[in-house]
C-alpha cells in the first residue's frame, strides 16, 4: 500500500538573555579584543568561559581575570560535516586552556592546512601552544576570535 510521510519545518526564534557575566565577557571581546575569566574565591580557579558561580564550589565568582591570548590545546577534532550557520567544512575546532585559566574554552583553529587530516592532526597535537587572534569586525560572539599555532 502507499505509505505517506509528512514533512514539517518549524521556524521559531529564541532570544536568550546572557546575563551580566556573559554580557561583560562578550563586550570585552567585541570592544577591546580581550578575553577574561572569573575567579572563584573559594577554590582560586579561574573559569573560562566565565560564570557567575562555580559549579564545583557553588560559590559566586568574585573577580575578573584577563587570560591569554596564549594558551595550549587541550583537545581538537577535524570536522567534515556541514552545519547550519557554521563555516563550510572541513574545519578544525577544539578546546584551549588560555594562560591564566583553569578551564578550557572552545573555539576554531585556523591557519592549518586540513587537506591531509593526519598531517593536520600532528600540527594540532594536544599540548601545542596557540594564540587567540581576533577578527577586525567583532560582534560580541564566540566567533570573534580563533586560535592559531604559535
Amino acid at each position: 500500500m502507499e505509505l505517506l510521510k509528512r514533512q514539517e519545518n518549524w521556524n521559531i526564534t529564541y532570544t536568550h538573555a546572557l546575563g551580566e557575566i556573559a554580557s561583560w565577557f562578550f563586550v570585552q571581546i567585541r570592544d577591546n579584543a580581550k578575553i577574561y575569566g572569573r575567579r572563584c574565591a573559594k577554590s582560586g580557579r579561574v573559569l573560562v568561559p566565565p560564570r557567575a558561580f562555580s559549579d564545583q564550589t557553588l560559590e559566586p565568582t568574585t573577580e575578573w581575570v584577563e587570560v591569554g591570548p596564549g594558551g595550549k590545546i587541550e583537545t581538537f577534532t577535524i570536522v567534515y560535516e556541514p552545519f547550519h550557520n557554521l563555516p563550510e567544512p572541513p574545519y578544525a575546532f577544539g578546546f584551549v586552556q588560555l594562560d591564566g585559566a583553569d578551564t578550557a574554552i572552545g573555539g576554531f583553529f585556523k591557519g592549518v592546512d586540513l587537506a591531509d587530516p593526519a598531517k593536520a592532526a600532528e600540527k594540532l597535537a594536544v599540548g601545542t601552544r596557540v594564540e587567540a587572534k581576533f577578527a577586525e569586525k567583532r560582534i560580541g560572539d564566540l566567533t570573534d576570535f580563533w586560535f592559531e599555532i604559535v
Partner: peptide, 25 residues
C-alpha cells in the same frame, strides 16, 4: 548552551572525537 557553545559544531560525533583526541594524547 546558547552562550558559549552553540556557535561550535558541537554534536555528539564532535564530542566523541574531542574525547578520543584527549585520550590518545
Amino acid at each position: 548552551d546558547p552562550y558559549f557553545h552553540r556557535r561550535l559544531p558541537l554534536d555528539e560525533s564532535s564530542a566523541y572525537a574531542l574525547q578520543a583526541a584527549a585520550l590518545g594524547a
